[in-house]
Deep mutational scan, measured.
Amino acid sequence: MQIFVKTLTGKTITSEVEPSDTIENVKAKIQDKEGIPPDQQRLIFAGKQLEDGRTLSDYNIQKESTLHLVLR
């Protein structure tokens, strides 16, 4: 499924993921596309910071959901 990751600069990254993918996994995909190390990434969805060990389905993230990427 496709999800969108919006950066603070307003850029939107499209990523191909599975509901069973972990947040860590998603951060790795963002690193592949943007070159941002996962340890600098914080992903936010519905006002919550997403934890690395959890999966997209844990957070009820569905296709075409938009996550927000904040850098630390």
Rank of each mutant, 00 (worst) to 15 (best):
M1S: 04
M1F: 15
M1W: 09
Q2L: 14
Q2S: 10
Q2F: 13
I3G: 02
I3M: 02
I3H: 01
I3F: 01
F4L: 06
F4Y: 13
F4I: 08
F4H: 10
F4V: 06
F4M: 06
V5R: 00
V5F: 08
V5E: 02
K6L: 10
K6Q: 10
K6M: 10
T7W: 13
T7D: 08
T7S: 07
T7A: 05
L8R: 11
L8Y: 13
L8E: 15
L8N: 12
T9A: 12
T9L: 11
T9Q: 12
G10T: 02
G10S: 03
G10H: 05
G10Q: 03
G10D: 04
K11M: 10
K11R: 11
T12P: 03
T12E: 05
T12K: 08
I13M: 07
I13P: 01
T14K: 09
T14C: 09
S15F: 15
S15I: 15
S15P: 09
S15R: 07
S15G: 06
E16N: 11
E16A: 09
E16V: 12
E16G: 05
E16R: 09
V17K: 00
V17Q: 05
V17I: 05
V17S: 03
V17A: 06
E18V: 13
E18H: 14
P19T: 07
P19V: 08
P19M: 09
P19L: 09
S20P: 03
S20A: 08
S20M: 09
S20R: 08
S20E: 10
S20I: 06
D21Q: 05
D21T: 11
D21H: 05
D21I: 04
D21A: 07
T22Y: 08
T22P: 04
T22I: 04
T22S: 07
T22R: 07
I23C: 01
I23H: 00
I23V: 10
I23M: 03
I23Y: 00
E24Q: 12
E24G: 13
E24R: 14
N25C: 10
N25G: 09
N25M: 15
V26H: 00
V26M: 05
V26R: 01
V26Y: 00
V26N: 00
K27W: 04
K27E: 01
K27T: 03
A28G: 10
A28P: 01
A28E: 09
A28N: 10
K29Q: 10
K29V: 07
I30T: 01
I30H: 01
I30A: 02
I30Q: 00
I30L: 08
I30V: 06
I30E: 00
Q31F: 15
Q31M: 13
Q31A: 15
Q31S: 13
D32H: 11
D32C: 08
K33S: 14
K33T: 12
K33A: 13
K33D: 06
E34M: 15
E34R: 05
E34N: 09
E34A: 14
G35A: 05
G35T: 03
I36S: 04
I36M: 05
P37E: 07
P37K: 06
P37H: 10
P37Q: 06
P37F: 05
P38E: 08
P38V: 15
P38Q: 14
D39I: 10
D39H: 12
Q40R: 12
Q40K: 11
Q40I: 11
Q40F: 09
Q40D: 10
Q41S: 06
Q41H: 06
Q41K: 03
Q41Y: 15
Q41N: 03
Q41E: 02
Q41M: 15
R42H: 12
R42W: 11
R42P: 00
L43Y: 03
L43P: 01
L43Q: 00
L43H: 01
I44F: 15
I44S: 08
I44Y: 15
I44A: 05
I44V: 09
F45R: 02
F45W: 08
F45D: 01
F45Q: 02
F45M: 04
A46F: 10
A46G: 12
A46Q: 15
G47D: 06
G47A: 04
G47M: 04
K48E: 12
K48L: 12
Q49K: 09
Q49I: 15
Q49F: 15
L50F: 01
L50W: 00
L50H: 01
E51W: 06
E51K: 09
E51G: 04
E51Y: 06
E51D: 09
E51Q: 10
D52I: 04
D52N: 11
G53M: 09
G53F: 11
G53R: 09
G53Y: 11
G53Q: 11
G53E: 10
R54S: 07
T55A: 06
T55Y: 05
T55H: 05
T55N: 05
T55G: 02
L56E: 00
L56H: 00
L56T: 01
L56I: 10
S57P: 02
S57E: 11
S57K: 12
S57N: 09
S57D: 09
D58S: 13
D58V: 03
D58M: 04
Y59R: 01
Y59A: 02
I61T: 01
I61M: 03
I61W: 01
Q62R: 11
Q62S: 10
Q62P: 09
Q62L: 10
K63L: 06
K63Y: 07
K63A: 15
K63S: 15
K63P: 15
K63I: 05
E64Y: 14
S65H: 06
S65E: 07
S65V: 07
S65A: 12
T66V: 14
T66R: 04
T66H: 15
T66Q: 05
T66S: 05
T66P: 02
T66D: 03
L67S: 00
L67H: 00
L67T: 00
L67W: 00
L67N: 01
H68C: 11
H68R: 08
H68N: 08
H68A: 06
H68W: 15
H68Q: 11
H68I: 15
L69Q: 03
L69N: 01
L69Y: 01
V70W: 09
V70L: 13
V70E: 11
V70F: 12
V70I: 13
V70M: 11
L71V: 13
R72K: 13
R72A: 13
R72S: 12
R72E: 12
R72V: 14
